[in-house]
Amino acid sequence: MSGHPRARMNEDFTNPVRLSLMAALQQVDEVDFKTLRESLEISDSVLSRQLSALEEKGYVIIRKGFVGKRPRTWAKLSSCGQRSLDEHVQALREITGGF
């Protein structure tokens, strides 16, 4: 890896909600929408919008299913999302001196 770590920072993760979402997803194999919303203390609409944006970019995989008759939405990081987040965090740490 070469150049200034700034060049490895990912513009898609500069939004704080999106970065928090990615950080939370990094901790799990899979999590449902409600648990994610409660853990991050954000609204349905914000979570839905940010998840869709991350899914469009290929960072997150969304799975919709049913538990009994109730619909449930699951989210997890894709391998591309995991890699991109790792690079972003590594660059952040290098710039801030390993905070």
Partner: peptide, 25 residues
């Protein structure tokens, strides 16, 4: 630099936020 530190802090807060649900899982 401060704004980048805050990004790292916000990540840690998010990871702490989900830790209770992780323990239950």
């Amino acid at each position: 630099n401060e704004s980048l530190r805050r990004q790292l802090e916000s990540m840690e807060v998010a990871q702490q936020g989900i830790s209770g649900a992780k323990r239950q899982g």
